[in-house]
Design a protein around this nucleic acid. Structure first.
Lengths: 144, 144
DNA sequence: CGGCAAGTTTATAACTATTCTAGAGTTCTT
DNA sequence: AAGAACTCTAGAATAGTTATAAACTTGCCG
């Protein structure tokens, strides 16, 4: 069994390190969720989506843990939370500078790389404050 | 009573017309809410806020009606709905082209006039779609 | 005006996404 | 190996919002 465990665990190594660096214990739930999140390119998921994806993959993890984990990953800077529609939060695995297309008909999100959308001028933040982030959402609908 | 009613009703006239133009019957609930919304400059309110404001002003209107009214006004183009934080919607009485500062510490919203924030380039929308709106949220925190 | 159809309001129940709770289980350190 | 700290979980609780169905208004027609 030791052998099987090792080959199974090898892909976790880099993730274990990311979690440790973020001050999070590498529990099995976090590791499995991290793999779902970070090993297939940039993703935009809701907690419910990720939970049912985990279920399908036979990963035993409760919905509460999915929420906790998404928030911890977000706090650690591994993800970013996006709120676009009332009633649900998306979590984005792409934490580089970028923006989004939002498809109003089906709620889908697609990245717009930072270099494809330029802000010519942003007004100075009010006194005593600083800009923590600028979010641009380009809403699109079906139509000519 | 007729006299008092008339002087009291006069300020409603322009609003009555706006509602009629939008295909909405000018009921007393809609008229009172419209006055709260449109007679004090640009506003960003949540349904709960508007409801308690109405209560303070001794306007008998249920929370359900506040929600209905805000949605109807939004559908009629008199307002715009903004979603920035999970769990609550803001309704904005300013429907001209503009964006927002969002104060992360207290959830306040402040308008940025359209001419103060320029988008140098927006990528073309995916095939078969068109841009219905671009929302820019500049998040600010307390700090130097 | 009188009265009917269509539209509106309301209290309340229902719902959805999310957070909380407290006890059981896991991980880390020594 | 053992205790402390942390984490997970089922289920209850919460918040904001939407649905329901009955009562009430409004607009319209004669």
């Amino acid at each position: 069994m030791t052998e099987a465990k090792q080959t199974e665990q090898r892909p976790f190594t880099p993730i274990v390190q990311r979690l440790r660096a973020a001050g999070l214990r590498p529990t099995s739930q976090r590791l499995y969720l991290a793999r779902l999140l970070f090993e297939q390119g940039d993703r935009h998921v809701t907690a419910e989506q990720l939970h049912s994806e985990a279920q399908s993959a036979r990963i035993a993890v409760s919905l509460a843990t999915v929420y906790n984990t998404l928030h911890q990953f977000t706090a650690a800077g591994l993800m970013r939370e996006l709120v676009i529609e009332s009633g649900r939060s998306y979590f984005d695995t792409n934490v580089t500078n970028h923006h989004h297309f939002f498809f109003e008909e089906n709620g889908a999100l697609v990245d717009i790389p930072g270099e494809n959308l330029a802000l010519a001028s942003v007004p100075p933040p009010p006194d005593g404050t600083r800009i923590s982030r600028v979010d641009v959402v380009v809403r699109v609908t079906r139509g000519k």
